[in-house]
Write a protein that binds this DNA or RNA. Structure first.
Lengths: 136, 136
DNA sequence: AGTGCTGCTCTCTTTTTGAGACTATATGAA
DNA sequence: TTCATATAGTCTCAAAAAGAGAGCAGCACT
């Protein structure tokens, strides 16, 4: 028996058990994962894990995000409890975004994934090139 | 000095250093992360980590995915080297999808995130409820 | 001859995202 | 005064992505 495979099986079982009667559609784990799997969520989490940032700073840090998506993604991250938004009464008023404790605790696992991407983006690039060569 | 914060800083530096001259737009880490942060990618990775599945089996396992998105997500995962697609010459022909070694190695970190979601979906639900109550 | 299974693709509609103008207030420079 | 800058957004419209569902080709079973 391979305990690694058994472990993977049990994970899937949990993902499945969270749902009512084996239906995946209303799974809370899925719900949480989808909240952080947006196009910009993980990038903003990475930035805010470094230190708090203001709206305009984030915009300059991630030059190809639109203001609209920055507003919306920060709003969603705040709603899910990962990000704290604080308005300072300067003139003009400035808004600072920072991670909450929940956000920091989620950032741990997220960081693992980023680390993996860091180590393996070469392999992914190669796989894409090979695939495109045969399927082109 | 807080070594944890220093560590987070260095992670962001790496994410940033991957780009040409501090520009985030063409970052390979971002490229890899975005490839697996689609709406269905992580869910299919979870399923295929359990065991290989056929197209129709995946469709039944994840009832609210459309055929179109299942085809496309599997295609993208295959292109990035996470998933292997094998056609068996049965009548009618059947197609089996399984994780590659690269896919399995990526599934480790991904699983950490799922585990976190499992433990913390209550906190996220509460945060959402609290946010909606004040901002509704 | 009709029905069903397989793994798709094609089209149409709805949702999401992107690009960019516009708001309101205040500060400093010409 | 008038112009330019900065703040953090919102609003509108176009483009891209996703969802719904029909259609397809080949074979087996009845």
């Amino acid at each position: 028996m391979d305990s690694k495979i058994l472990n993977l099986r049990s994970k899937m079982e949990v993902y499945k058990a969270m749902t009512d009667g084996g239906n995946f559609a209303d799974c809370p784990v899925r719900d949480v994962i989808q909240g952080i799997s947006g196009k910009w969520s993980s990038l903003l989490m990475m930035a805010l894990a470094e230190r708090p940032y203001r709206f305009g700073e984030l915009r300059r840090l991630v030059p190809d995000i639109s203001q609209r998506m920055l507003t919306q993604t920060l709003h969603d991250l705040q709603r899910d409890g990962y990000v704290h938004r604080e308005v300072f009464p300067t003139k003009p008023p400035s808004v600072e975004y920072s991670l909450t404790d929940l956000g920091r605790s989620m950032f741990g696992p997220l960081q693992q994934l980023v680390q993996w991407a860091e180590l393996n983006h070469g392999a992914v690039r190669d796989a894409r090139a090979a695939f495109d060569a045969t399927q082109g």
